[in-house]
Structure formats: C-alpha cells, structure tokens
Write a protein that binds this DNA or RNA. Structure first.
Lengths: 203, 203
DNA sequence: ACCTGAACACCGTTCAAGT
DNA sequence: ACCTGAACACCGTTCAAGT
C-alpha cells in the first residue's frame, strides 16, 4: 500500500507538531511517543521519519515553537511598560504566568535532553538568547553605568532565579506540603534583587 | 534454577542502589535501566522486583540518599560559619559545588518524575524540608523581626533562585554560547537579594 | 514517489517453573 | 523460599515491499 500524498511534507510536519503539542499538554511528557503522534494525524510511524530526523528533532522543533510563544508573550509585556523597573517585574510575572498556563509545554523545554555529546543547534540557542535579551535590555536601561558583561551576568542571576522558583514550585519540590504559588516568591526575588543591584555599585 | 541466598534482601537493596548510583554518575539518567542494574549486581531483573516496588521506587530511594548527602554537605558548611550572612553565602556556594561535583546524581532528583497523579511520599518530602530548613534557620537569624512565614517565603525565593541558576548553567540553557559558571551568578544573586532583604522592612 | 507495516533491538513488569 | 528466565505489552527506528 501507500502513495497517498493527501498532504505535503510541510503539512505533515505542521500536523505532527500540533498533535504532539496537544498530547504533551493533555497527558504530559511521559505519554508523548511516536506511535501516538502518528496515529493522531492518521499516518503510521514510518511517515514521521520522512519529515523528522528522529523524535529528538521533533521535540526540538516543538520546543522552538514554545520558545517563540514565550518570547512573544514577554515582548508584548515589555512593550507595555516604559519604566524599566516596572518592566522587569512585569516580565518576571509574565514568565510565571506562561509557566503556569502552559506548564507541560514549558516543562518539555527543560525535561527533554539530547543524547550525551550532542549539543543544541545554533538556531535553537538563538531563540533562548532572544528571551534573555529582553531581560538584558531592561537591566541595561536600569543601570546604564554597568558594562554589558555585568548586565549579562545580572540577567543570568535574576532570570535563573525566576526560572528556579517556577520549576521548584510547579514540580512540588519546594519543601512545604502542598504546591506553593511561585508568584509571591518571584515578587520577593525581583524586588530584593533589584534593590541590591541598584544600591551596590561594584558588580 | 534459583535459591541462592548469597545475599539478604537488605544486601541486594544496597548493592542495587550502589550500582544505580554508579551507572547514573558515569552514563546519565537515560542509560539507567533495570536490566543494567540487575546485571551489574549479578542478578536478573526479576530479583529487583522482590526488593523494590518498581523502578520509580528504586529511583526515589537513590534520590533520598543524594538528598542525605546534600544535607550533610550543607550542614557541615553551615556549622563552619557563625555570621549568618556569611553562612548563607557559604550555603549557596556549597549547593553549587555539590551540583557541579555530583551533577548526574543531583540532576536525577529533578529529572525523575512520578507518574501523573502520584505524589512524593511524606518521608521524602521531609528530606527536602530538611535542606530548606538550613536556609530558613540562617535567614531567621539574619532578620529576627520577620515572621516565620516571611522567612519561609524568602527561603523559597532565594533557594529557588540558587537552584535555577545551577540548572540553567549545567544544562546549558542560559542563552550564551558555551556553558557558564554558576558561581558568579549565585554570588550576584545572594549578595543583591540579601542587601534588599535587610534594607526593605515590609515583606 | 510516497507511505506502509512488519521487523529489530530494546524497554518495564510479571509470574510459572525450577532448585 | 528464593531466584530465574521466558513472556507480555510496550518503546524508537529502519526498510523492503506495495501502489
């Protein structure tokens, strides 16, 4: 059997990514596999390998879309705040909101690992840098006297911090009994960090 | 065949956990599976299920040991610093050192997820709380006027932050090309956060 | 040319059968 | 009683064979 050509390669790619997104959203990372994706789009497993190099490639392309969506949400937030301290706080809360609203998709970015030895492709690292860029831009505006290296360092510290609070809260590893809301912790982190960042001139 | 009784149940349990620890350390989470653990201790897969409920149970017990080791390292560090600000910084750096030195074991704590619906057992959550307790104790001493709820909130914010920096740095998801050292970012985070925490009386 | 579906080498988990 | 090893229902990936 075979030779259907109901859909172009690009259509199959889009359908597969949409199906994978729905599966991970509804059932989580562990439930995401090739046969389930294929049957959701009405094709057999083999077809996926005509369009994607392998499952790692499919997951990477799915994560790339999520990073695009995250960047769009943060960029929208950034453009709504002229004051750069307000902007940084709004960015942090927008990150928390995205993580809470799209938890499974957002977690897939961090749960998926390439086989040992393989590194993330350059076009993918560019997308990560774009998200960090929004934070760096606001920090640079807040402290114009700092070098770009100092601003980059502060962005890593602050954004790593925001991310860590989200991860520990959403995966229930923050020590306390039930799940805790990351909102208050992030507010505390950003407020205190920025106060110190502006007050201390060295580093 | 069968009936060897070369080892007691408890001995087999200890051997399996030691083998699993070695495999994850040398080959990473993805390479850790039942058949490999069993053959490393000279038994067949079936035997593992006499001692552990399933692989999730085995991983949880391995993570419990790692949490014990982490707690011991942090407790040692804490007792070496009388000044509580110095103690907090030393704790943060000790956490970074542990994550860098035992990366694969430390990552297993966060990469391993129970099936949807299942929650971490109470005895395990106690171990997580013990680690947080060291941070809370130092923060409480630093700011005796704060309520215990405020101290707990600050511990979540600060420690979530330290953790996030480590995770992003060690998994190469901090935006910049090569891997970045988490040490400088953590130093920046803790210094600036604590400065703000002491200066701002509300929250 | 496009797609299938069976095959291969793996998984986690169970359990009748051996000693 | 203790352990085996074969079996089951799954994986990801490949590829000869059909249309």
């Amino acid at each position: 059997m075979a030779r259907r050509s109901d859909h172009s390669r690009e259509e199959i790619r889009a359908m597969a990514l949409a199906a994978a997104q729905q599966i991970v959203t509804e059932q989580g990372f562990a439930a995401l596999n090739a046969r389930k994706i294929a049957s959701a789009i009405g094709y057999t497993v083999g077809t996926l390998y005509l369009v994607f190099k392998n499952l790692d490639d499919l997951f990477l392309q799915l994560n790339a879309r999520t990073l695009d969506d995250l960047h769009a949400a943060l960029a929208d937030t950034a453009s709504a705040h002229a004051d750069c301290e307000q902007r940084l706080k709004a960015l942090a809360h927008a990150y928390v909101d995205f993580a809470c609203e799209h938890t499974q998709r957002w977690e897939l970015i961090f749960q998926h690992r390439l086989p040992p030895g393989e590194t993330l492709p350059q076009w993918y690292q560019v997308k990560i840098s774009a998200v960090f860029g929004l934070v760096e831009a606001a920090l640079a505006e807040l402290a114009p006297e700092r070098s770009s290296a100092q601003v980059a360092e502060a962005a890593r510290a602050l954004w790593g911090g925001v991310h860590g609070i989200c991860i520990l809260a959403l995966t229930n590893k923050l020590g306390v009994g039930g799940a805790t809301s990351p909102r208050a912790s992030v507010e505390s982190l950003v407020t205190h960090y920025l106060y110190g960042f502006r007050a201390l001139t060295g580093s």
